[in-house]
């Protein structure tokens, strides 16, 4: 007899995960007010999905979570995934099935060569020009070999060193090989310097994926709370990108250096009502964000960044905690 899960998918864990025993992906996304959730799987052509799956709320929804199970054989060549979501069009909602939405739980986000921030700000389709999630047909840890990695724990000898992965080695004077400048791998080359200086904790300015075109190089406008920023990796595939980040953490640990992340959970890079619709806005606008009662400024903006994540929503709180646990456990 076929299992319920293999027919309907499971609402947990959220995100796209791999059910190895079935050779299938499980997709689960919170979208409380949505009336139609359509999963889109893509190969290299990001305008034409290789598979379009319209979730049936009668069997692909549990509580506020939409979910489905897609065998890999049903979507040959699939490398990327995204959603198209419809629902009430009036405020405070912002449903627009024309917009291609990435999964807030995506572990790697791909910005295609035709990526266009403006297309996500205008009415109409942004297919082929939207950031999308990458699929991984494998476990969360990508079978990364952590070896005998251990977290150093410093006490009286704690000296924190705050750095930006890009700015630290981007300059030619860094002495880092050109193809590694401004990357996770470039920072690895500087570990002997950190040891010579004597610092024992490295605090990385935000490494969560942000929009490479929004001009905020520091990274304080995050989009992907589960995705390391791709421009600081050389690879474009999820596991290879993650391996570059994990190798950095592993090498710092091996040198006796703790790693601390500067994390940003109070707002996202979607900005205010003039900003792009990439994900959260089109999934559950007033669920993810704190809304005001001012028509000309619908988003509460407590930090001058355009919007404010609504952590009073238990699903947003869950996302924040899931993200923290993910970085601490899977990325160490």
């Amino acid at each position: 007899m076929t299992s319920w899960a293999s027919v309907e998918g499971l609402p947990l864990p959220l995100g796209a995960t791999w059910a190895a025993d079935e050779g299938a992906y499980n997709f689960a996304i919170y979208a409380r007010h949505a009336e139609q959730v359509t999963l889109l799987l893509y190969g290299d052509d990001l305008r034409t999905p290789v598979l379009t799956y319209r979730c049936d709320p009668g069997r692909n929804k549990s509580g506020h979570v939409w979910h489905c199970r897609i065998p890999a054989t049903a979507a040959p060549g699939a490398r990327y995934y995204a959603y198209s979501i419809d629902g009430p069009r009036s405020a405070p909602h912002q449903f627009d099935p024309d917009k291609i939405l990435f999964d807030p739980y995506a572990r790697a986000i791909f910005f295609p060569p035709e990526f266009d921030r403006e297309a996500a700000r205008r009415p109409g389709s942004n297919a082929g020009r939207a950031p999308v999630g990458l699929l991984v047909a494998g476990p969360l840890d990508c079978n990364f070999d952590w070896g005998d990695d251990r977290h150093p724990r410093h006490e009286a000898d704690t000296v924190v060193y705050e750095l930006h992965v890009g700015a630290f080695t981007a300059h030619p004077s860094s002495g880092v090989k050109e193809e590694r400048r401004g990357t996770y791998a470039g920072l690895i080359e500087k570990i002997p310097y950190l040891v010579e200086l004597g610092v024992t904790v490295v605090e990385l300015m935000p490494v969560f994926q942000f929009d490479p075109s929004d001009g905020n190089y520091w990274g304080y406008m995050p989009l992907g709370f589960f995705a390391p920023h791709d421009r600081w990796a050389r690879a474009r595939e999820t596991c290879e990108q993650h391996a570059e980040f994990r190798s950095l953490v592993q090498a710092l640990h091996a040198a006796g250096i703790e790693v601390v992340l500067d994390v940003v959970y109070n707002h996202t890079g979607e900005g205010d009502h003039r900003g792009p619709v990439y994900s959260f806005k089109g999934i559950d606008n007033d669920g993810y964000y704190m809304m005001s009662d001012r028509a000309d400024a619908p988003y509460e903006d407590f930090t001058g960044t355009g919007n404010t994540l609504n952590s009073a929503n238990p699903y947003v709180r869950r996302m924040i905690l899931d993200s923290l646990r993910y970085w601490a456990r899977e990325m160490r």
Binding site: E162, L163, G166, A167, A170, V199, G215, N216, Y217, Y220
Partner: peptide, 29 residues
């Protein structure tokens, strides 16, 4: 204690105290 990277060799940003969008030699060590 927290040290800002580069202060140990007197990194300068030419007086820019908020180069959040300067992916260039202003920010690069």
């Amino acid at each position: 204690p927290m040290l800002r990277a580069g202060d140990e060799f007197l990194q300068t940003q030419g007086g820019n105290n908020n180069p959040y969008n300067q992916d260039n030699e202003t920010s690069w060590l």
